[in-house]
């Protein structure tokens, strides 16, 4: 395993069995994966495809039925690897009777941090996830979005090299979703490796460098997002301010070169972009109906 490889799985398989050892379901079938340092890697697939099982195997929460997973050069079952790992579960499984400060302080202690380091880290993270005003409130009083944010903070408490995010945007409103995605991109810029699993395609497309698509426990596709999404035999032309004559002329040029014009229409933005635009406008001009010019959706701009 090279220095640049953070996670490597070799024929990783998981079979869930009942009490008597009879096979219930084959959740993962001989998965071979490599995640490289500094990338955002997405595990994509429908419900029950084996995404969460893969994350749990990598974390050592489950034991493989066959094969192995090596994380940061150590076996997945080795607790020592957790020193450099942060994990945000699908739901933020935190102690609801603690407040934000106590929660982060507790997890900081689990990393054997000194009181000074812990205090500094707790302050930084609480501000970073925007919970400064709610730092003394018990988590049972938190909204779903706030719980996700404190969940993310606990995952980052040790300033990890590898961060595993299970459905990071699940249950978040569009603003929360965008903030989470921005945070993920920021973490990559800081040099961290991120593995996330989601069944929300837009989220994965927005932030991931590489993805693996799983279905029924099998790896179906693996590669860079931009390469996988490129349709080789279709050419897209995007332009602004064309007249009808010009459009007709473009159609004729395509026909002359034996091409087939599939569509020529005004592009639409994504609902997410529209919603965020409205919210931004509303905040800028409170009490007035929002006036949003729909931006043209371009995935390249988001990264």
């Amino acid at each position: 395993m090279s220095e640049e490889t953070v996670i490597q799985t070799r024929a990783l398989s998981k079979v869930y069995r009942d009490f008597w050892g009879r096979q219930k379901v084959r959740a993962l079938k001989a998965l071979d994966l490599e995640v490289h340092r500094g990338e955002i890697f997405g595990l994509l697939g429908p419900n029950g495809s084996g995404k969460t099982t893969t994350i749990k195997l990598i974390l050592g929460l489950l034991f493989p039925s066959a094969g192995e997973a090596v994380v940061l050069g150590k076996a997945a079952t080795d607790v020592g690897k957790n020193e450099r790992i942060g994990y945000l579960p699908e739901e933020s499984y935190l102690y609801r009777f603690l407040n934000a400060e106590e929660t982060l302080d507790f997890y900081g202690r689990l990393f054997d941090m000194t009181p000074e380091t812990r205090q500094e880290r707790v302050d930084t993270l609480i501000k970073q996830v925007g919970l400064d005003k709610a730092r003394k409130r018990q988590l049972q009083e938190y909204s779903k979005g706030m719980t996700r944010r404190i969940g993310l903070a606990q995952a980052l408490v040790n300033n990890p090299d590898l961060i595993l995010l299970d459905e990071p945007t699940s249950g978040l409103d569009p603003i929360g979703t965008r903030e989470m995605k921005d945070m993920i991109l920021r973490l990559r810029e800081e040099g961290k490796t991120i593995v996330m699993c989601s069944h929300l395609l837009a989220d994965v497309q927005d932030v991931c460098d590489r993805i693996a698509i799983l279905h029924q426990g099998e790896l179906k596709e693996l590669g860079r997002v931009d390469q996988l999404l490129t349709v080789e035999d279709i050419t897209q032309i995007r332009a602004r301010g064309l007249s009808e004559e010009c459009k007709n002329e473009v159609s004729q040029v395509i026909a002359r070169h034996s091409g087939e014009l599939l569509e020529m229409a005004n592009p639409t933005t994504t609902l997410e972009e529209l919603f965020l635009g409205i919210v931004r406008d509303s905040e800028a001009r409170p009490g007035r109906r929002a006036k949003v010019t729909a931006p043209v959706s371009n995935p390249d701009n988001k990264k």
Binding site: L59, G60, L61, V79, G80, N82, E83, I85, Y87, P89, E91, Y93, L94, Y95, Y107, L110, F111, D112, Q154, N158
Partner: peptide, 13 residues
């Protein structure tokens, strides 16, 4: 409650 997930994924023996 699965709170154990966030404990055992830390370096807790």
């Amino acid at each position: 409650t699965k709170t154990i997930y966030t404990i055992v994924t830390k370096p807790v023996r």
